[in-house]
Design a protein around this nucleic acid. Structure first.
Lengths: 337, 337
DNA sequence: ATGAAAGCGCTAACAA
DNA sequence: TTGTTAGCGCTTTCAT
């Protein structure tokens, strides 16, 4: 009963105990080559006895195909981000890949570089960039050209392989719904755009223009429902506001609450719509009209795209999906004044 | 202008270009040993010219002090989990560590093993287990004994170094608040317990017993606000219910909504309290009385504990923090009937 | 201060 | 089917 050092067992230890050569152990573990049943069993027993775990570092070094990937994002705990990461992780895990996370704190190149340095010094097959916001965009811009990368976002951008949710199309449809209810126009509280303008904002503008409706000035962009609450309070005092399209559901919740603070009811006095289909959107009072985004699926598609890019098995560089408008109780015909 | 193959530059390439030996390049990059200014400059230039990035695989293989850690959790997108992971990532990044994520799909040993296999073959300094639920507990139980590990959770458990939030104490205080308002007892909708009983449930029970109040049977445990809504509807028909303590804020939102579905108002008819201080709890109508949990800080503390465990610099194996009760509008004295 | 040599743990050729 | 031989790209002795 040798109580060895704390050094983890290596393949050589396993080989010694099983009375075989190191490559044979490797063959048993990879399952690729045929090994005699006897030796296979002896190896498996030794693996168990030593609780041997192969070193990913050594594997990556020699095989040049690391079974890990990095996710770079501006946030990880907001609903859309977290769900996307969950989708990536699930797909990666199913394929035997490990997922690393690195957060980009701000929109500056230095922020991106800090986050990238961390993961690019790891043995990874490639990087998935969540390009929902300025930090994500910065990360994409600072990415060294030789790193396999796929961007995930709400709007297509040329040059980079990416999985997208066609937010502009869905936003346009949602805005048309509001106009069809009879609202003369629709106000808009955007989320902070990742580029010049968010896809949701683009779709909203397109629908208004197509309908010949007035295009109101944008409200202040925010991710924060608390800031949106202030916006709602302000909007409550503006008689020209009869419908508000919000950049996401949390902003819509804030706006609805802010309107309510001032005694303005949703949807009787003002209709409010959101985006994303946050799990709480349906439970809100009133239940929020929104656009269902499959973030989990976006993550899965992103992983599939990345594996294609890495091993060149696939020529596909884009994957787009159209989110679905969900009509609930927060939108209704305008009040007859 | 040699357009070489796509093979990434190695240290040997840099050494060749700079006219020095490989170890000298290594010395320049690590900064540990002194190198003559001339050679240093030549090396740095070559590094830039070749956009050389050291191979993490080779480094990890030889250095044995991985700058990475793994987070193992049963979920990653629920509020508390996501925030905790965000805290871990921030602390790890500040210390130059990379974070890997692995999700445990279910409570079975096989689920845990699948998730663990993935990260334990990576070169990691240690593992942080989010022990909020049965999958987390399973992961902890299946962890090989030679892996440095720290558990993060809402209740202390002997044997493992861990960072905890003293949920029982806070739950007790919150329940006392409800009783002090004049409610004869408090009903409870638990979240699924990670062990026999959740800390929140324990605190609730303690407060009732201490006050000599009747201890009602537990409602069905859930994480889902939609299931909680059903519970709320059912509770609406029970005249003995005047106050409900929910395992978390999302459950509280569901219960409030379910009560409202049946015409029962919060807090006029029934008081409802939650747990966690979810970002939307304050925006809910009515604003939800709850317990503020510093999940981000929990993650930070967990990382600090793990580094202590790994390099043995610290003897501390526990870090506990008491969450703070936040009284809002969803709790009030009982209706006089 | 610098280079030569050894070797981290594994897989991929190649022989046998 | 199996073992032997070579490395993968780096850090760490150890000379010089």
């Amino acid at each position: 009963m040798t109580t060895g050092s704390r050094r983890p067992a290596t393949m050589a230890d396993v080989a010694r105990m099983a009375g075989v050569s190191v490559p044979t152990v490797s063959r048993v573990l990879s399952g690729a080559a045929r090994v005699s049943p006897l030796k296979r069993e002896r190896v498996e027993e030794a693996v168990r006895a030593l609780s041997f775990r192969p070193s990913a570092a050594a594997r990556a070094l020699v095989s040049r195909r690391p079974k890990a990937l990095a996710v770079v994002a501006g946030d990880t705990s907001k609903y859309g981000y977290a769900e996307t990461i969950r989708g990536i992780e699930a797909a990666a895990r199913a394929a035997g890949h490990t997922v690393m996370i690195s957060v980009v704190e701000g929109p500056e190149a230095a922020d991106a570089d800090r986050a990238l340095r961390l993961v690019l010094t790891q043995a990874i097959a490639g990087v998935l960039v969540l390009k929902f916001d300025p930090p994500g965009v910065a990360a994409l811009r600072r990415m060294p050209p030789d790193v396999p990368v796929v961007a995930l976002s709400g709007a297509r951008e040329p040059g980079v392989p990416q999985a997208v949710l066609d937010e502009a199309g869905a936003a346009e449809e949602l805005t048309r719904h509001l106009l069809a209810l009879g609202h003369p126009t629709v106000h808009h509280v955007p989320v902070p755009p990742s580029r010049r303008e968010d896809g949701r904002t683009t779709g909203w503008r397109r629908a208004l223009r197509a309908a010949g409706a007035r295009v109101p000035a944008l409200e202040a962009a925010t991710w924060s429902p608390h800031v949106a609450r202030e916006t709602g309070r302000r909007l409550a005092g503006d008689a020209s506001v009869s419908a508000v399209f919000c950049g996401n559901d949390e902003v819509a919740m804030g706006v609805i609450r802010g309107l309510a603070d001032e005694g303005v009811r949703t949807p009787e006095d003002v209709s409010v719509a959101g985006f994303d289909d946050h799990p709480l959107a349906e439970l809100w009072t009133p239940a929020i009209t929104t656009v269902r985004q499959d973030f989990f699926g976006l993550g899965e598609r992103g992983f599939a795209l990345l594996t294609g890019v890495v091993d060149g098995t696939s020529r596909r560089r884009f994957s787009s999906e159209r989110p679905e408008v969900v009509i609930r109780a927060s939108t209704a015909p305008p009040a007859t004044r």
